[in-house]
């Protein structure tokens, strides 16, 4: 929510270098410092996002590490190879991967000030993200139907915690994307600040994708190696 509001209020030209009088200071929305360049000449909002994503590395690193620590240590219940479906997961993985492409194109169009195309790519990204979450909901209910619950085994606990947090991140991203697209539709975005804000939203989105790249390979595909 607050991000979306911030999107309407802050912004700066991309890449954080320089800075031109026409950009960034004409919003009349008070003294938002987020997209101002700091003493490094970098926009604070982008620095903040990278710092946040660094901490997210640790977060997901521990969740994936814990999954591996307890891998194959379950006493009972369904095992990964009993319930994983490589076809379904490959489709949803591919969707998420392609959503990174549409996200990159949205950022590019925001920089080109093609706001119509930007919005279309943002919505395409959100749609793919939503489809990914849909696949995950399907997968989880399928697993529960096969007797794997959060409390069934070490596999259940570590798997649902890890992938559940990832799915929650995707969901937050989808909400963020949809809100920005809505604000763009209503013309409520500051056109001079939109590029940096969409770029920062893109950083978050790509991060969610790279976490899945790791989970897909090391959690799912690993079970299908002989």
């Amino acid at each position: 929510m607050s991000e979306a509001v911030a999107i309407a209020h802050d912004g700066h030209s991309h890449d954080g270098h320089g800075h031109d009088a026409g950009h960034g200071h004409d919003a009349g929305h008070g003294h938002h410092q987020l997209t101002e360049n700091n003493f490094l000449g970098l926009p604070n909002i982008k620095l903040a996002m990278w710092a946040f994503l660094g901490s997210e590395c640790m977060f997901f690193g521990s969740l994936i590490g814990t999954y591996f620590f307890y891998r194959e240590m379950s006493l009972g219940g369904p095992m990964p190879e009993d319930i994983f479906d490589v076809n379904i997961t490959s489709i949803s993985t591919f969707l998420l991967l392609m959503s990174s492409v549409t996200m990159a194109l949205a950022v590019d169009n925001a920089r080109q000030r093609n706001f119509g195309k930007m919005r279309a790519f943002i919505l395409a990204t959100a749609a793919q993200g939503a489809a990914f979450v849909g696949f995950q909901i399907y997968e989880f209910s399928h697993f529960v139907a096969h007797g794997l619950k959060l409390s069934t085994s070490l596999f259940g606990s570590t798997f649902y915690t890890m992938t559940g947090f990832h799915g929650a991140h995707v969901s937050v991203g989808v909400i963020w994307l949809v809100m920005v697209a809505l604000l763009a539709t209503q013309g409520k975005l500051n056109k001079d600040k939109i590029a940096i804000n969409v770029e920062v939203m893109g950083l978050y989105w790509h991060f969610v994708d790279i976490v899945w790249i790791i989970i897909f390979t090391f959690v799912y595909l690993l079970e299908f190696t002989r």
């Binding site: 994503l53 690193g61 521990s62 814990t66 620590f69």
Partner: peptide
């Protein structure tokens, strides 16, 4: 992009990687 971004992202990333390797080795 700027080295500060790289530092902010990659130092915790490597820390996460090392804890991951340590956990796996411990297992």
């Amino acid at each position: 992009d700027h080295g500060v971004y790289k530092f902010l992202f990659m130092s915790p990333m490597f820390l996460a990687l090392f804890s991951f390797i340590a956990l796996s080795a411990l297992a």
